[in-house]
């Protein structure tokens, strides 16, 4: 299965994104990172570390579970509910620019759900989207502000991100065969 990004590549990409964040926002004082569970959270934390190294500033970081906001809940004719995990956003999102972090951007539906969830938490100054991989095939008008890698794919393929924190490996794989469980 072809590895489209190895550990080294992922690390450099994240560093590059961290620098872009600082540049575009002219400083990080009013930023906050929110990772979409599960891998988005790991990525968000790494970005927070990078940002601290670069600016010396601690950017607040939270974790968002979007399961209850999915548009395909309760629509499965067969099959069980997705597992719900805790959302932890231990800071107010009002008057902040939120950097929403996810691993793969595909149809855009996860992002849509995440936006709905965030709005319920408060009224941020703005929301920017960071993704490690953009694989195309949008079904909603969603665009990422920071992209690690653009990866053209076909609908029959699937993209899997493996991160040390949850998978004991670091790589992004492109394989044949559809992902199970619904689109991101």
């Amino acid at each position: 299965m072809p590895v489209v990004m190895d550990a080294d590549r992922i690390a450099r990409t994240l560093t590059r994104i961290a620098h872009e964040i600082v540049e575009r926002n002219r400083g990080v004082e009013d930023l906050a990172l929110v990772g979409v569970r599960t891998r988005g959270v790991h990525l968000a934390r790494r970005l927070a570390r990078s940002l601290r190294e670069i600016t010396g500033h601690d950017v607040p970081t939270g974790a968002l579970d979007i399961t209850l906001y999915r548009d395909d809940l309760m629509r499965h004719t067969v099959g069980p509910q997705p597992l719900v995990r805790r959302t932890e956003i231990p800071f107010s999102i009002d008057n902040r620019k939120i950097l929403l972090v996810d691993d793969v951007l595909y149809t855009g539906r996860t992002t849509r759900a995440a936006l709905d969830a965030l709005i319920d938490f408060g009224r941020p100054l703005g929301i920017q989207l960071i993704v490690l991989v953009d694989r195309g095939h949008r079904e909603l008008p969603i665009k990422a502000d920071y992209v690690g890698k653009n990866l053209p794919t076909s609908a029959e393929e699937s993209v899997q991100v493996r991160l040390q924190e949850s998978d004991d490996r670091e790589e992004v794989i492109l394989s044949a065969g559809a992902e199970e469980g619904g689109a991101a």
């Binding site: 599960t38 891998r39 099959g79 069980p80 997705p82 597992l83 949850s166 992902e179 469980g181």
Partner: peptide, 14 residues
């Protein structure tokens, strides 16, 4: 109980 763990974000049980 049904447990399918393909991708951790899609872990399901019922």
């Amino acid at each position: 109980p049904v447990i399918a763990r393909v991708d951790e974000t899609l872990a399901v049980t019922s």
